[in-house]
């Protein structure tokens, strides 16, 4: 491979990725490592969501169903079988297959619909999964949930950190390549002008279904990692709150980029953590969701492009001024 053809930004991202692998040697606190793992998990989840929202312009309110599918398939498999690495591999495979099939069927059935109809339908479908998880007590344990054992290797917070970091980095570069491929360029075209894309000779529905399958499978993988870090599963993995969370992460970080959702995920997870800690200082911080809502409104009003989008705009303007 010719090194000169690699974009400059790739080196920057590689450097950041490298730093991520150094962090656990410096930060050894279990709770802080857990927090960072959560960031990685939700970073992956938010990236998969941004494939739909930011790249293709599909608004889904039911993305959590894939997350939940990943979480439950892993938990159930570890519950039923010996907790070995093999089971873990099986869990990833099974959750990817289920999520792939579900997103394919849902996509075929619903993606013909235009924006808000589609959004409503996905909301309803995610609700269906939630009810299903509550009622199918034999497998899911209902709303009480259940704990399960993990292979020794995955109990270790350091290993889990490395696994999540590696997953995030690989998925980031993988998806980044996909969004820069001819296929990815068509996705952006669909977001920009669907009917025009069609009259250029692209089958828009095919693209939407393919991207929702990719996005669903990636989301299910983030569900797998999430549940590994908790070692406990209940119906909250299907809760609409999670979809809303991931929507906020994507919007705050910057839609239409992959690094944006990761930054959004870190901000929200950190804010969640710190603001709850501040509850000793003032009761208001206990209701951190109030602050969270306020910040969100401010961001949507003043930085509609999110953090990354706003910074990118500044940078472009700055460069334009310099070349003048």
């Amino acid at each position: 491979m010719n090194l000169r053809t690699i974009e400059k930004s790739t080196w920057v991202y590689l450097a950041i990725a490298f730093l991520l692998f150094v962090v656990p040697f410096l930060v050894t606190g279990r709770s802080i490592q857990f927090l960072i793992i959560q960031i990685f998990v939700f970073g992956i989840f938010a990236m998969s969501y941004d494939l739909l929202l930011g790249y293709t312009g599909i608004i889904s309110f039911g993305h959590v169903m894939f997350f939940g599918v990943g979480a439950y398939s892993t938990a159930v498999l570890f519950d039923r079988f010996e907790p070995t690495i093999f089971t873990f591999g099986l869990a990833i495979l099974v959750s990817a297959i289920i999520a792939g099939v579900v997103s394919f069927i849902v996509g075929i059935l619903t993606l013909r619909l235009k924006s808000h109809f589609y959004a409503m339908l996905t909301l309803a479908l995610a609700g269906l999964f939630l009810v299903g998880a509550e009622k199918w007590r034999k497998v899911t344990g209902g709303s009480d949930g259940f704990t399960f054992g993990l292979p020794d290797m995955l109990r270790d917070s350091f290993t889990l950190y490395m696994l999540s970091a590696l997953s995030l980095v690989l998925l980031f570069f993988g998806l980044r390549r996909m969004t820069k491929s001819p296929f990815g360029k068509v996705l952006v075209a669909i977001r920009e002008n669907e009917s025009r894309t069609e009259s250029l000779g692209y089958q828009v529905l095919h693209y939407k279904v393919i991207v929702s399958v990719v996005s669903g499978v990636v989301a299910s993988y983030s569900g797998v990692l999430y549940i590994l870090s908790l070692r406990f599963v209940d119906t909250s993995v299907f809760a609409t709150d999670l979809t809303i969370d991931v929507l906020l992460m994507t919007i705050i970080g910057g839609v239409g980029t992959l690094i944006g959702p990761i930054i959004g995920a870190s901000l929200i997870e950190f804010a969640h953590h710190w603001l709850s800690d501040l509850s000793d200082v003032h009761w208001l911080f206990e209701r951190w969701i109030i602050l969270y809502g306020t910040i969100f409104i401010l961001i949507v009003v003043f930085f509609p492009k999110g953090i990354v989008g706003t910074l990118a705009d500044r940078y472009i303007r700055w460069r334009a001024r310099r070349t003048e």
């Binding site: 390549r177 996909m178 820069k180 491929s181 001819p182 296929f183 990815g184 360029k185 068509v186 692209y202 089958q203 095919h206 393919i210």
Partner: peptide, 9 residues
């Protein structure tokens, strides 16, 4: 070139 996902554009 419609569904090429791997190569850079």
């Amino acid at each position: 070139v419609r569904y090429q996902m791997m190569a850079h554009f």
